[in-house]
Amino acid sequence: MTKLLEWLFGVSLVGAVWALVTFDLLDLSLPQTYREVAWPMPLYLLVSFGCYSLATVGYRVATFNDCDEAAKELQEQIKEAKEDLRKKGLKM
């Protein structure tokens, strides 16, 4: 199953449950409060997922390591390498 199909399957499952409760399709005569909680649920889910995404990406951007040490080390090694290669007879 491709990822696309997995997503379609998941979304339709959630959608079906949501419709069952909100429109009481099976005539379970659920209490009114169930319906009232259920009908805006997709929007809530979407908004919380959006918030989660923003928070996660924001946190990861803020904590993205800056490898200053690595860059410095590389610059020094480049000098060392150039000198050594010249000695070995490399013409750049």
Binding site: V57, V61, F64
Partner: peptide, 25 residues
């Protein structure tokens, strides 16, 4: 301890955003 050197905020944001989207999908 992984990381990057020489990336500005825009580049980091695009990279992290694209990575997050890919992980989700």
């Amino acid at each position: 301890n992984g990381g990057v050197y020489g990336w500005d905020l825009r580049r980091k944001l695009i990279s992290r955003g694209a990575n997050f989207l890919t992980q989700v999908l």
